[in-house]
């Protein structure tokens, strides 16, 4: 039983990491209507930028994270301006958009590798002792990860429901043509979405690195399909679905370690993805016309 609660605790932490990442991916999909296969690179960039600020420039860790996240958001913005905008102007089909993001993932990963090399690294922070909360044992870092995720989800919720930007994003997500006709400046909403998506990828990358301790430039890509699994499980393009998907995937993959070797936990995520595609491809929360 203690093993169950231990893994459930891990599951909640993993779910927290995944929630940031899957919401970032899903929000952008909802607004732009194409899957970003370079998302793993944004994630890696976030953790590596933060590493530079904290390990090389000796910023306090929180400040380093803020800088790293902002830099990732800027990266996402630049990529949108330089790569996606010109393509959108030419009205390229979704086919080609996917190939472009796919090519972009190789491009960004290779550039990151040129600067950061291929080895493993870790953040210069101390691991804290475990704190007992009910049946769970959490380290301070783990609690911090959960806190960051919960606060971020609340912020995203408020953004979507209370601000005019959030309402425009939802409008574009529901019906892009209608949104355009009704006078929404779709271009600036798209820009804002990319910035938010990039920031969430960056933040998700940092908390992922905090959780796994060691990371490398390809960490983002190896996690990419786990993020996809969470996003598809929740219903692609659905922000709250992505949160739900992250919770399910996070908890199930970690708790599965009770029965199968933890080396296979990403395989469990793949299994969930496959079952979902076979049984209910539209996801738990279906969005019309996007499956």
């Amino acid at each position: 039983m203690s093993l169950f609660f231990l893994t459930l605790g891990f599951g909640l932490v993993t779910a927290s990491v995944l929630s940031l990442l899957s919401v970032g991916l899903s929000l952008q999909f909802g607004v732009t209507n194409f899957v970003n296969f370079a998302y793993g690179s944004y994630l890696s960039a976030g953790m590596l930028f933060t590493w530079t600020f904290s390990a090389k420039l000796h910023f306090p860790f929180v400040l380093a994270t803020v800088c790293g996240v902002i830099l990732t958001a800027i990266l996402a913005l630049i990529v949108n301006e330089v790569v996606f905008e010109p393509f959108a102007k030419r009205r390229k089909s979704i086919f080609y958009m996917l190939i472009v993001t796919f090519g972009l993932s190789l491009l960004l990963d290779s550039i990151l590798q040129i600067f950061y090399g291929v080895g493993f690294d870790k953040f210069p922070i101390k691991q804290s002792a475990a704190i007992k909360i009910g049946p769970f044992d959490f380290t301070g870092v783990q609690l911090l990860i959960i806190l960051v995720a919960v606060v971020s989800m609340v912020v995203i919720h408020l953004l979507l429901t209370r601000t005019s930007l959030g309402k425009k994003m939802r409008a574009m997500s529901d019906n892009p043509d209608l949104a355009k006709i009704s006078g929404i400046d779709t271009k600036s909403v798209t820009r804002a979405t990319w910035a938010i998506s990039g920031a969430l990828a960056g933040l998700g990358g940092v908390v992922l690195a905090l959780n796994t301790v060691y990371f490398e430039t390809t960490t983002g890509d190896s996690l990419l399909f786990v993020i996809f699994a969470a996003v598809i499980l929740g219903g692609i393009g659905q922000t709250y679905g992505a949160m739900l998907g992250a919770l399910v995937i996070g908890v199930v993959t970690e708790v599965s370690a009770v029965w199968v070797s933890s080396a296979y936990k990403t395989d469990v995520a793949f299994l969930i993805l496959v079952i979902m595609l076979l049984v209910r491809p539209q996801g738990i929360i279906a969005s019309q016309g996007k499956a």
Binding site: F34, V35, F102, F225, D267, L273, V274
Partner: peptide
């Protein structure tokens, strides 16, 4: 898994996921 009346994104995701999975396995 992925060719039954789904958007092309899904197949791309499944191929990529399968690749990552088999590489690790």
């Amino acid at each position: 898994i992925a060719l039954k009346r789904l958007r092309s994104d899904y197949l791309a995701i499944v191929t990529l996921a399968t690749g990552t999975l088999l590489y690790g396995l």
